[in-house]
Write a protein that binds this DNA or RNA. Structure first.
Lengths: 129, 129
DNA sequence: GCATTACGACTACGGATGTAAACATGAAGC
DNA sequence: GCTTCATGTTTACATCCGTAGTCGTAATGC
């Protein structure tokens, strides 16, 4: 049955997000493969990754597919959806939903590279149409 | 802006942020005045506000000035510093430090108003100099 | 003066999060 | 068959966060 896709907008935590990044980059992956990707970088043990994977499954953010003994994990939540909602959240919380002040902010903080500026100009031109 | 001695940039939580907003808008305020500003909006009791104020004091985000029997609270952390670091954080975490993808993201999510676009054009023109 | 009140300090408590160990179980080697 | 490894499941535990109640005490009303 076409699941009404009970959109579970469960928040993904910071640590969980690191695991998601690994899966967005390549999937499906086993738990140990995910660990290979992130454990060193974050100083985690395999156990930690296993916990995070379980929590992500519970949050409906990733899917499991049995592969003999173990599971293969792949993202259910798409990266764009995640980054989109997180960005939105920030803009809403900090700038009353307006994006312009956010960029003014970044500009002032010198967080904009020349490339950023160039790309954004192109994008703006697109949007103007 | 920043005083010689850097105080630890403790993270401000979501609820705490609401209190900060009230103080950024007008300060100094007493605890009850802060409550007047936010309690209704968030469904909080005065007790909650008092807790949040204490935590913010502990985090060195606001200052207290005794006014007889009670305190007057004012922000120590400036709004621009907060929004700046939060924005930066998001851009780093989600877009590898590049602002352009964030912009693309917001554009795609139709989170950009015409005003935003207009303002950003002005901004970009400035930056390109 | 004494009760009420206003206020900050301290305490509470459930849920989320970061981090991980213990446990169960099946596979794989020998 | 028994040991060992790999792997998911359960349990653990400290900290933070959201939300608030209680306590001690000074101000204030009468």
């Amino acid at each position: 049955m076409s699941t009404p896709e009970d959109k579970t907008p469960e928040r993904i935590s910071d640590a969980e997000h690191a695991v998601m990044e690994a899966l967005w980059q390549r999937s499906p992956l086993t738990a140990s493969e995910v660990c290979d990707e992130v454990c060193e970088k974050r100083g985690w043990s395999l156990a930690t990754v296993k916990t995070l994977l379980s929590r992500l499954v519970a949050k409906n953010a990733i899917a499991t597919e049995p592969d003999g003994r173990r599971f293969l994990y792949s993202p259910l939540l798409e990266r764009a959806d995640y980054t989109g909602s997180e960005s939105r959240r920030l803009v809403d919380r900090l700038f009353g939903g307006r994006a312009a002040p956010l960029f003014a902010q970044l500009a002032e903080a010198e967080a904009l590279t020349d490339d950023d500026i160039a790309e954004m100009e192109v994008l703006l031109k697109e949007l103007r149409k």
